[in-house]
Nucleic acid binder design. Structure first.
Length: 655
DNA sequence: TCACGGAATATTTTT
DNA sequence: TATTCCGTGA
């Protein structure tokens, strides 16, 4: 019962919380009742605070299943709960934790019928959504064609933005895509068609998980009460990156008790493109009157010279809660800005410097190279391979997005949901002599059968497609004939798919290894639906290639990461490459103050990852064809920083 | 109806 | 830089 959880004497606790935390952190973990906002600067022990708070609540006797910890990735939640388990005991592992999306998923599975959904609804990832939009786009936009009608990718962005900001398609187009306003009607029509499509096929995209959850809570007071009272203590990490729907969900969830704690740093808000609004954090006290605010300003991560620089960076922001980080960590060297002749010389500089660091005894996995966009590391990856330096790449183009993985997943998805048109198309188009028209016909036959992929058997194929279709039929007949474990189904599909893989991709040995990895993951599942949901909702974050295998084992590898994927992490030494004006900030962001501001925060996030050493590098003389200019200036966020805070150097030309 | 080749074109970031 | 679009030949 809640009364138990507000003990005033710390004597009953086994863990000496007060000595393990600083005064502000301790205040944050003991203020368990009522709304609480923690403004936590970079490296100020945010994760530590959350972890200890979970442990203390559990130690105080709160039922673990009554605690909800919402984080940005499932991994973040897992790590915090593991850490809490180490601190206290295994009860902490029973705390409910995950992302807003995964929370939405689990609640909706339970209450699906109340929302007119089948409990077995499927989740569409971004690629699925775009594929569906593409089909609808062609149907609706069949009329007079002009070249600049938005692509599926742009349409998906517009739709998602409107949903996450809880506004209309019209508003989004006028505000953010003004050049498309002449296509307003068609865009709105496609959006309607997309919504209908999802409804008809029992499909939910990422945004729907939030929308349906919000509607469920809002429209069903009885259910809301039940859920709200089952989670007595709610904690939210990275609150600066939540959007309006998420804020509303929290509001609805905490109506009963108001025991909500959110942690965040407005200076680290970097997901506006996804509808996140850093003002959420400033509005929290208005949403929850009586909010207690605690600020964590002591930085435990970086040495003073690094903080000097990061403070200069963030001082350029127009709008922020003011806080100044300080550290007691002494020594450390001044961050360095390195000019390189071209991209390759930048890569060589980084490789060379890393070798130096290793010689000095720095572990490879304590070094990270960060960049604005996934492809910025291509050249460096080539050099790393040449030097046989092991690395793992996080962010950018991912494992599950690669064609061969998607192909295999599509086969599994139609087993789980025979009405999955997108996956059927994908499968059928893999077969020689089958194009869109034939695929359409086959799909109609399957749909008319109703009872699932047995409909495939009714297709009497003609012409060249015969052979391929026969193989496909055999595959499904085999899977259908007797119950199989998830991984056995996977093996059957892979066996069927291998000849196709070999024919279509000249680099098939590499891709074959990826498929083995996929099978290894499947072994952990005993339910196909759960496997597919996880692959959509929480796919492995690492990029393609054999690096993937090592996800669990903490191997000694260099980390390459997008800045977004580096959020919350830290390393001994950090390199920020492509710190070139026009790349970081990106060229398309410099026209809008808002966008530029987000780039600035992104640079701040990147720089605050470093504990001891921080290097910025940029290649001179890069031609940007999209803008038609030569880029040769360092990022405007650091260009004017004086030498005593940021040392300027040239990469030696013999690299 | 499919497959292929050339031209246009838009370019992060992620649940 | 790769994807996506569009026209042509089989």
């Amino acid at each position: 019962m809640p009364e138990q959880s507000t003990p005033s004497n710390s004597g009953q606790f086994r863990i000496p919380y007060e000595t393990r935390l600083n005064a502000s952190q301790y205040e944050a973990i003991t203020a368990t009742e009522g709304p609480l906002l923690v403004i936590a600067g970079a490296g100020s022990g945010k994760t530590r605070t959350l972890t200890y708070r979970v442990a203390r609540l559990v130690e105080a006797g709160v039922s673990p299943s009554g605690i909800l910890l919402l984080t940005f990735t499932r991994k973040a939640a897992q790590q915090m709960l593991e850490r809490a388990t180490e601190l206290l005991d295994s009860r902490c592992g029973k705390v409910a934790g995950g992302t807003f999306h995964s929370f939405g998923n689990s609640i909706l599975r339970k209450y699906a019928p109340h929302m007119g959904l089948a409990p077995g609804f499927a989740i569409m990832d971004r690629a699925d959504a775009e594929a569906a939009i593409s089909i609808l786009r062609k149907e609706i936009h069949a009329g007079p064609k002009h070249r600049s009608f938005p692509r599926k990718h742009t349409l998906a962005n517009i739709f998602s933005r409107a949903v996450n900001k809880m506004t209309t398609i019209e508003d989004v187009v006028y505000d953010d895509y003004a050049h498309l306003s002449s296509d307003m009607e068609a865009i709105a029509l496609i959006f309607q068609a997309y919504q209908n499509h999802k409804r008809e096929h029992q499909l939910l995209d990422f945004d729907d998980l939030l929308v349906y959850l919000q509607q469920l809570l809002k429209g069903h007071p009885d259910i809301r009460e039940r859920i709200a009272s089952s989670y007595r203590y709610i904690m939210v990490d990275e609150y600066q990156d939540t959007n309006k729907i998420q804020a509303e969900i929290l509001y609805l969830l905490t109506g009963v008790h108001q025991n909500i704690m959110v942690v965040g740093d407005d200076s680290q808000s970097i997901y506006a493109f996804r509808g996140a609004n850093f003002r959420n954090i400033m509005e929290f006290p208005k949403m929850f009157p009586g909010t207690r605010i605690i600020t964590l300003e002591e930085n435990y991560r970086s040495v003073q010279p690094i903080l000097n620089l990061t403070n200069v960076i963030i001082d350029q922001a127009m709008e922020k809660y003011s806080k100044t980080l300080f550290t007691r960590r002494e020594g450390g060297s001044t961050p360095v800005l390195v000019s390189a002749r071209d991209e390759n010389s930048q890569s060589l500089f980084v490789v060379h410097k890393i070798q130096e660091l290793i010689d000095q005894g720095v572990a490879l996995n304590q070094i990270a190279v960060l960049f604005r966009a996934g492809f910025h590391s291509f050249d460096l990856e080539i050099e790393l391979n040449r030097e046989q330096m092991p690395f793992i790449k996080v962010g950018g183009f991912r494992f599950v997005e690669s064609a061969h993985i998607k192909d295999v997943l599509a086969h599994l998805r139609v087993i789980a949901n025979p009405h999955d048109r997108i996956s059927w198309y994908r499968i059928l188009l893999l077969i020689n002599k089958i194009g869109p028209t034939t695929a359409q016909k086959v799909f109609e036959a399957i749909r008319n059968e109703g009872s699932g992929y047995t409909g495939l058997l009714t297709v009497n194929s003609t012409g060249g497609a015969l052979k391929g279709l026969k193989r496909l039929k055999e595959l499904f007949a085999q899977i259908d004939s007797f119950p199989m474990s998830v991984v056995k189904m996977g093996e059957a599909v892979v066996k069927h798919y291998l000849p196709i893989l070999k024919e279509r991709h000249d680099d098939h040995p590499k891709r074959e290894k990826d498929l083995e990895q996929l099978l290894a993951i499947m072994e952990r599942y005993d339910n196909l639906g759960n496997f597919l949901t996880d692959m959509a909702l929480e796919p492995p974050n690492t990029s393609v290639g054999d690096t993937f295998a090592a996800e669990s084992a903490a191997k000694d590898r260099l980390v390459l990461s997008t800045v977004h994927s580096a959020k919350g992490l830290e390393w001994h030494t950090v390199f920020i490459i492509w710190a070139l004006d026009g790349r970081f900030p990106s060229a398309q962001s410099i026209y809008k103050a808002e966008d530029l501001e987000e780039e600035l925060r992104l640079m701040y996030v990147a720089a605050t990852r470093a504990r001891e050493n921080l290097y910025f590098t940029y290649p001179g003389q890069v031609y940007d064809r999209s803008v038609g200019v030569m880029l040769n200036q360092p990022s405007r966020f650091i260009a004017m920083v004086p030498e005593d805070i940021l040392e300027h150097r040239w990469a030696e030309s013999n690299f």
